[in-house]
């Protein structure tokens, strides 16, 4: 089985999905701010050997339809919850990458029936770094550790989303108070941090895990912020172990 495209329509918007249909339970991946599922496809390919894995493009990003105006974080979360329903998935595991973590946490808190487990790969935004300039500084410092092969993908993503869409997503990520929501996540949650992630400092990753009622932290040594792109096989093994442990 290989990766294939499967779209759904949610609230009159076409949501692009990339799927690899492995034998196990469903996992839905949600990308970061301004980007798309492009960076997640190698990971979908790796985890798709064992699980039914999806990566979707949020509305306004990648190959999905653009709404009239950029959606707020809670509107994006509502779309994800509706998409889960539309796709006929029964309580999948939602995996967020970077800003995607903020989206899936919002889904889990306001639509508890939508997810049976969460994976937060590089959860943003550290409250102590919550300013545009700090975020840019962290992003630049982190960029040195990311794979150079990711840059053309990012550029294509930013082109797809447009400047307004990218800035809106970053604005939403800064405004969102994820720390207030984590205590209300009632499902098992795996927090993943790259050991060299400059956007998610270790003390913040620990705090995220501490606030989650059923959180567990795994630090992947030597990896930057985008762990699923840098080490798709390693992250897939981690997620597989977690899913078999929580029996999702």
């Amino acid at each position: 089985m290989s990766l294939f495209r499967q779209d759904h329509v949610v609230d009159d918007l076409t949501i692009a999905g990339h799927r690899k249909r492995g034998p196990g339970s469903a996992v839905v991946c949600v990308h970061g701010a301004g980007v798309s599922s492009r960076e997640l496809l190698p990971f979908v390919d790796a985890l798709g050997e064992r699980h039914d894995v999806w990566a979707i493009d949020l509305p306004g990003f990648g190959a999905s339809d653009k709404p009239d105006r950029p959606l707020t974080l809670s509107a994006l979360a509502d779309v994800v919850a509706a998409w889960v329903d539309q796709a006929g998935l029964e309580r999948p595991c939602l995996l967020g990458a970077s800003f995607g973590c903020q989206v899936v946490v919002d889904v889990a808190v306001r639509h508890p029936e939508a997810a049976a487990a969460l994976v937060l790969a590089g959860p943003t935004v550290d409250p102590r770094g919550r300013s545009p300039w700090r975020l840019v500084g962290q992003w630049l410092r982190n960029a040195r550790g990311e794979s150079p092969r990711m840059t053309p993908l990012n550029i294509a993503d930013y082109r797809d989303a447009g400047l307004r869409g990218v800035l809106a997503a970053f604005g939403e990520s800064i405004r969102d108070r994820i720390e207030d929501k984590l205590t209300h996540v009632s499902v098992p949650t795996l927090v993943l941090r790259g050991g060299r992630d400059r956007m998610v400092p270790q003390p913040w990753a620990e705090e995220v895990t501490r606030l989650l009622p059923y959180g567990r932290l795994v630090v992947m040594e030597g990896l930057p912020h985008m762990t699923p792109y840098r080490d798709p096989g390693g992250v897939a093994r981690c997620v597989e172990d977690f899913l078999s442990e929580v029996a999702v």
């Binding site: 620990e206 501490r210 567990r216 932290l217 630090v219 040594e221 030597g222």
Partner: peptide
């Protein structure tokens, strides 16, 4: 550790 088990200040390599 049920939630957080971490090396502190150690370069494991």
């Amino acid at each position: 550790a049920s939630k957080i088990g971490v090396f502190t200040g150690i370069d494991t390599r």
